[in-house]
Design a protein around this nucleic acid. Structure first.
Length: 420
DNA sequence: CCGAGAGGATTATCTCACCA
DNA sequence: TGGTGAGATAATCCTCTCGG
């Protein structure tokens, strides 16, 4: 393609062929630059005039020359000259943003729609006849987006599989997926592989939920400075974060924590909530007030010993808005509102240390909510979430290990040392 | 195009449970 | 009691996005 239609870097053709996102779609500028449209327009004209087969003129080749021409024009002339182009670029941008052209995404939605339909039918038959159903769905291609899916009509399925195979349904469906994706070898998952896979699935799930909540594609989920990067920009908050620490899944080191997080998102116990205009307005006001207070009031606050919020704000860590309590019976429509920052329930926006821990429900709270869910569930719901086993404090805790360069490679190194 | 920063993946090393 | 390997932890590396 590059040979046939030269003039771009290889990356450009790859993006055109695969229809993947480009930087312009990731974070489009708020306003289309008149200068850019002028530059594009003029370069296009010059390219039309060039000899057939000649090397295409790039904007960088003519920008200086065109800059002089641009500056010579009055503001009105510039406006008039680029008006049409700006409009057509705006339309193209809109089409690019909302247009559906990704076959993987189409497949994902197809699977989801079919699964939803099957779920409805199974529930109906179960209610009419009392027949027990267990329905599993896994992808067989790593490129597909759909996460493993479990639908079961009774908790007894969990008990049965655990008693007979020593695996939970979650473990089994992960193994099943690995079998389809990687063949028999995929079954030989060790802890690390499972952890990595689950982290990846969880990150993808959270991003998908974020996109659904905002109604448009977000380039990536931001965990550090969540309130600034996500809530402030998109008016979305998180409810029911199940862990004491808010961070990206890859930074969670315990497998059980990742499982808990994944299950919480999959079940909806943890979810994004889009704020209404009023709610967002209030949230934004408070957010800006808190930040202003943190900057302006730090010295006097420390001196009079009052004003914990501002003191905590200066801790340099911004914790996202996390709903303080998970309702016993999840009802998003009713519980989506109170994430507006008030002094009681939005501790997360101003607290970085002590308050954040108390504000976020413990793992057991999330688990109890899960078990209170309906009888048909998604992946992993209803299984008891076992907290990580307490371990001895490591001797080298807090001691920097230093560079490992030149210390040899391969996982067996530590074992070899131990053997010695 | 480039640097900063964040997310995600990989690697090295230690702990612990199990078994002969 | 010692060997073995899975699990756990922390450091480091790699990749990507964003904004200037």
């Amino acid at each position: 393609m590059q040979a046939a239609v030269p003039g771009h870097q290889l990356d450009h053709y790859i993006r055109v062929i695969t229809q993947t996102i480009t930087r312009s779609t990731v974070q489009p500028r708020k306003h289309i630059s008149k200068w850019n449209t002028f530059l594009a327009q003029e370069t296009r004209k010059l390219n039309k005039k060039r000899e057939p087969g000649a090397v295409p003129i790039k904007t960088s080749d003519v920008s200086k020359e065109l800059s002089a021409k641009w500056k010579a024009m009055s503001a009105e002339e510039q406006e008039q000259y680029t008006e049409d182009m700006v409009q057509s670029l705006a339309e193209a941008r809109e089409a690019k943003e909302s247009g559906q052209h990704n076959s993987q995404m189409t497949a994902f939605h197809d699977v989801r729609a079919v699964v939803e339909h099957i779920q409805r039918e199974i529930v109906n038959v179960n209610q009419c006849t009392g027949t027990e159903f267990l329905f599993l769905a896994v992808r067989k291609d790593i490129k597909r987006f759909n996460a493993p899916y479990i639908l079961r009509m009774s908790d007894l399925f969990d008990t049965f599989f655990h008693n007979t195979t020593k695996f939970t349904l979650t473990d089994l469906v992960l193994k099943l997926e690995s079998f389809f994706i990687g063949g028999v070898d995929g079954l030989a998952w060790n802890y690390l592989e499972r952890l990595v896979q689950l982290k990846s699935l969880t990150a993808a799930l959270i991003k998908e939920k974020l996109n659904n909540a905002t109604g448009h594609q977000i380039s990536r989920m931001v965990y550090t400075n969540f309130d600034e990067a996500i809530t402030l920009k998109h008016g979305v908050v998180i409810k029911g974060w199940p862990l004491s620490k808010f961070c990206c899944p890859s930074h969670i080191t315990s497998c059980s924590d990742v499982e808990l997080l994944y299950n919480a998102w999959q079940s909806g116990a943890t979810h994004f909530v889009k704020l209404s205009n009023d709610e967002y307005g209030r949230w934004r006001t408070q957010y800006l007030q808190h930040h202003a207070a943190a900057i302006q009031e730090l010295p006097p606050i420390n001196s009079d010993g009052n004003g914990q919020s501002a003191t905590v704000l200066t801790a340099n860590t911004t914790v996202p808005v996390v709903e303080a309590t998970i309702p016993a019976v999840p009802n998003p429509s009713e519980n989506a509102v109170p994430t507006i920052p008030t002094s009681e329930n939005v501790v997360g926006t101003v607290s970085a240390s002590e308050n954040a821990v108390s504000a976020i429900p413990p793992a057991s709270a999330a688990a109890s909510t899960l078990t209170a869910s309906p009888t048909f569930m998604n992946f992993g719901i209803g299984g008891a979430v076992v907290p990580p086993k307490a371990r001895k404090t490591r001797k080298e805790k807090g001691v920097p290990r230093g560079s490992r360069k030149g210390k040899g490679k391969g996982k067996g190194k530590g074992k070899e040392n131990q053997a010695k």
